[in-house]
Each structure stands twice: as structure tokens, then as C-alpha cells.
Design a protein around this nucleic acid. Structure first.
Lengths: 174, 174
DNA sequence: CGGTTACGTCAGTCATGTTGACATATTTCA
DNA sequence: TGAAATATGTCAACATGACTGACGTAACCG
């Protein structure tokens, strides 16, 4: 059903079968905008930003995470991480303990306060997701997960999967 | 169909119906990170950033857009918009024409150069999406669209829908 | 003991967002 | 017609969260 295909493209060789996916491109933009907008309101009350949220989230989900592992997840520089991490430490949302095998490592753990804040934000985002899944009908959870998983850069999937599916309490709450 | 639920809790006693959706929360984070990472490489060559991409994208998809409409889509201030828009105008990626009915308005149109750049970036993102849909199997496009649509803040859906589904060439390329 | 590793930190820069105030052209309405 | 409202542009100051580059310190490892 595709006639003449596009000429002057610079990127290798897109066949005409790849009509622009404007719908999904834009839906991703709007959905993500509102998805991250939820926690912003809570964060503002603490003088925190999205960077703090991301750090706290992954520390919460992976207690004992090292600095190096966190840098690899967030794909930012240690200087960037350090600024927000320092604030989370000073204000008692995260704490460090020396590594057991390797005492150079600073293992990161959420405090009770940190867990409470992380839970609050996860709850907000969970509400939005739960409403969306209900609205999108049965099977939408698995379908959405399959699609999003496949959107991740293949080289990054092993480490992403380890985090996403290898977290604690995979099938029991607390 | 919900049994008695949440009264006044702020934390730590979510009903079992709302177990944290960590999987989708994290998949959204990783998928979006890589999704917006694609155009970054192209943009860097022009000295542009993601802000330029967003402006160019929506102007490309909605030629004749006004400043006010663009501000409403992006949800940023006119000062923020102006900085990147000025660069896109100066470097000939976008052009302005006075409104026909209302000559105060500056209608925004992509130039040939602007269309080429927007197409390049859309093509990259389309590739990632197309691969993901293939991998996620039949029906995944519709399922993903339903889910993402439902993730958008309800109050924003009318305007988002108008953009997403009301754009030009809804079923013919060029 | 010397080299490497894990992490911290100082200093400067850039991109992108914000608020507030004010200017200019045009339209609308009493 | 003249005053108010609207659409846009712009100046200035500031916050956040990225970046690079350089250097310091403690701990591990061979």
C-alpha cells in the first residue's frame, strides 16, 4: 500500500513502511509530562526537584546501592549526583554505610523518612497508572509493559531488567 | 467495585488494590530516557537542545500555530519559549507570518530546512517505536496508545487529542 | 609499596526553566 | 473615537540540574 518512498533522507534507509509514528511520539510526550508532574507538587514542599526524586526512588527500591551503580542507572556525572545526594543525606532521607567487603564503597539506604517520601510519590504515580490501566481495559498492563520494555535501548535492557524485575518484594507488600 | 478504601492515610497503608506499580514506573523512566536520547545526537550537531526539538516538532505538525497555542502545549513561559524560538527563527528553521484575521498574531511555519530537521528526528523516534511494536506483537500499537492516552491528565486530554489526532496528513504521507 | 579504584569536591559553564516589569502593535468595545 | 484588553517581545535576575576538568583521599590489590 506504500507507493513512492521518501527521497532525501539522511538516516540510512527507512522503508516506506515506516510512516512517522506521530501519535505515539506525542502521546509519550504528554503522558510523561503529566506522569512526572505528579511528584513535582510534593517535592516542591521539601525544596527538592526531580533529581532528588530519581535518586530517592532507586535507593528506596535497591537498598545498599553503591554510588557507582546509581551513576550507571541515572546516566549522570558524579558531580551532578553528589549535589542532590548531599542534600538527601543532610536532611536525613538517605544514609550511607561503609561497604562490608569493600570499605571504600558507600552503600546507600533510605531512612524511615526517605521511605515515607518515596512511598508518597510512588503512590501518586501508581494512582495515575492504575486509573489508566482500568480505563485501557484488561491486558493493558502486560501490553504496556511489553511495549515500554521494547522501547529501551537493547544494550541497556539487562541492567534495566535487573532493576525493574529484580527489586525487593516482588510479590509481597513489605 | 471498590470495597471500602482509603480514608486519611498519607503513607504506609495503601490498600492491596493499589500495590505500587514499580514496574511501569521504572519502565516509563527508562523508555522515555532512551526515546528522547535519540534526537539529542542530531540536535547537538546544530547546537540545539530538547527545547528546540519540542518547538520545531509542534510547529512542523501544526503549521500556522500561534505563540499562545504553543505556550499552552509546552506549558512553559513565553520568556522560555522566546529564547529557543528566536534561535530557530534566526537560523531559518521556522518563520513567522502575521495572522490574517488578527495581525497581532505571529503564525509559525517550518521552513524547508525546519521540515527536514523535524523529519530526521521523527524518523529516528519512529524507528525505535516501530521496532518496539514489532517486538511487542500485534495489537501493541493500539494498546500502547490507549494506555498512554489514559495516562494524560483528564483536563488536558481535549487539547492533547486535538493535536495528536487532528494534525495534518492523518492518512496520507505528504 | 605502588598503582588502581571508589568516592568527594572545587570551580566554571551551559541549557532550560522561573518571576516580575515594561514596551509595542493591534483589536475590541463602550 | 478613545480607552481597555489582547498578542507578543524583551530586559533583568535567578534556580535547577546537567556538563567538563582538575585534584584529593581512603582503601584495595598485586
Amino acid at each position: 500500500m506504500q507507493p513512492a518512498l521518501d527521497m532525501n533522507r539522511t538516516e540510512s534507509d527507512a522503508p516506506a513502511t515506516e510512516r512517522p509514528q506521530y501519535e505515539l511520539i506525542e502521546l509519550l510526550f504528554f503522558a510523561y509530562r503529566d506522569f512526572v508532574g505528579d511528584p513535582d507538587r510534593i517535592l516542591a514542599a521539601y525544596g527538592f526537584g526531580r533529581a532528588h526524586h530519581r535518586v530517592l526512588h532507586f535507593v528506596h527500591r535497591n537498598p545498599g546501592l553503591t554510588i557507582a551503580a546509581l551513576l550507571d542507572i541515572l546516566k549522570i556525572t558524579k558531580q551532578s549526583l553528589n549535589r542532590v545526594l548531599k542534600e538527601l543525606l543532610e536532611q536525613g532521607f538517605v544514609e550511607q554505610r561503609a561497604g562490608v567487603n569493600d570499605r571504600r564503597q558507600r552503600l546507600l539506604y533510605p531512612t524511615a523518612r526517605g521511605r515515607a517520601l518515596a512511598d508518597d510519590m510512588a503512590r501518586l504515580q501508581t494512582r495515575r497508572i492504575a486509573r489508566a490501566l482500568e480505563e485501557a481495559g484488561p491486558g493493558s498492563r502486560e501490553a504496556a509493559a511489553r511495549f515500554l520494555e521494547a522501547m529501551i535501548e537493547p544494550a541497556e535492557r539487562p541492567s534495566a531488567d535487573r532493576l525493574v524485575h529484580g527489586g525487593r518484594d516482588e510479590d509481597e507488600a513489605q
